[in-house]
């Protein structure tokens, strides 16, 4: 039974509250998923430590070519941020596509990752940006790459009863680089994706220097299309290359069948289409960057 609701004003205070509650207190940010899980008794906590009043976590900053998103930054703020729109428009687009405005106005980008939903939209883009999370605990600060944030399906590697993810950060895409995000869903709002794909490319003349592709939900978290990425390294910028990458991406994907969001067969059938669209859009973006 929930006994306390804390609203600390600093990271240090939040960590002390976690420590003092010996694993019975849990971090809450937007809470849009957490409160439902709590009501359904899927998670238990005696106290919530709400980090949304911590000023330093409300910022989106760019310094030394690195963009940092605080843990209290909402999807709406990320989607509307000029910094993010300019440097990582795919992330803005992904943030815009989550749930509804009422959700996006509270739910945080970091929470979208920590919640470890397999189809989290922003996480897919953060995966190709090779973002890393700043994880605070009594033991100090460490940086965890995004792909290590998932411990299983709907299971985060972060323990929110002792650890606090304060920020997520990624290197700003450079000239000749571009990102893109595409999403397949059954309606335009209030829908988890049937599939979503993010791409980031770096171009060198008429070739791909390299490319990163992430797909969901085809595994516990965003899944990188390793085979396709390998092939794309140094490959010519042609329709054939893109087509080949789209097919190779399937080798890394293991989608499940859902009665609600599409069968495995359908997801396998359309994944290459989304990969193609994401890659093509990322290339177009890179040309203008």
């Amino acid at each position: 039974m929930l006994q306390e609701y804390y609203l600390p004003h600093s990271v240090a205070d939040a960590l002390i509250l976690l420590k003092n509650n010996n694993g019975q207190a849990r971090i809450i940010a937007g809470g849009t998923d957490l409160v439902i899980d709590h009501q359904a008794e899927k998670i238990k906590a005696e106290a919530f430590v709400d980090i949304s009043n911590i000023e330093e976590l409300k910022k989106i900053e760019c310094a030394d070519g690195v963009i940092t998103i605080g843990a209290a930054v909402t999807h709406s703020e990320a989607a509307r941020s000029e910094l993010i729109q300019k440097h990582a428009p795919a992330l803005a687009m992904a943030a815009r596509s989550v749930g509804s405005l009422q959700i996006r106005n509270i739910a945080t980008v970091v929470g979208n990752v920590v919640n470890a939903q397999p189809a989290a939209d922003t996480a897919v883009v953060l995966a190709v940006l090779e973002a890393e999370a700043e994880v605070n605990s009594a033991a100090g600060v460490k940086y965890v790459p995004l792909y290590k944030m998932y411990a299983g399906v709907c299971k985060s590697a972060v323990d929110s009863t002792s650890q606090l993810v304060t920020r997520i950060r990624f290197i700003v895409p450079q000239r000749n680089q571009g990102t893109a995000f595409v999403r397949l869903c059954q309606r335009k709002a209030l829908a988890l994706p049937m599939l979503n794909v993010a791409a980031m490319v770096s171009l060198q003349g008429d070739r791909f220097a390299w490319a990163r592709l992430a797909m969901a939900p085809v595994g516990p978290g965003p899944v990188r299309a390793i085979e396709a990425e390998k092939m794309l390294r140094g490959a010519p910028l042609t329709d054939e290359t893109v087509e080949k990458a789209a097919q190779l991406a399937l080798e890394s994907a293991n989608p499940r069948s859902s009665m609600v969001r599409g069968s495995r067969e359908y997801r396998i059938g359309v994944l290459p289409v989304l990969v193609k669209r994401a890659l093509t859009a990322a290339v177009a973006r890179a040309h203008t960057n």
């Binding site: 059954q186 309606r187 335009k188 709002a189 209030l190 829908a191 009665m259 609600v260 969001r261």
Partner: peptide, 27 residues
Amino acid sequence: SEEIKYNDKGKQQNYSFHNYFLPTAED
């Protein structure tokens, strides 16, 4: 888009606005 399906144990798979796809204003 609107359809309620039942699994092989007779349980509805589309029992909320989240997974029953009635149109929103954007549709």
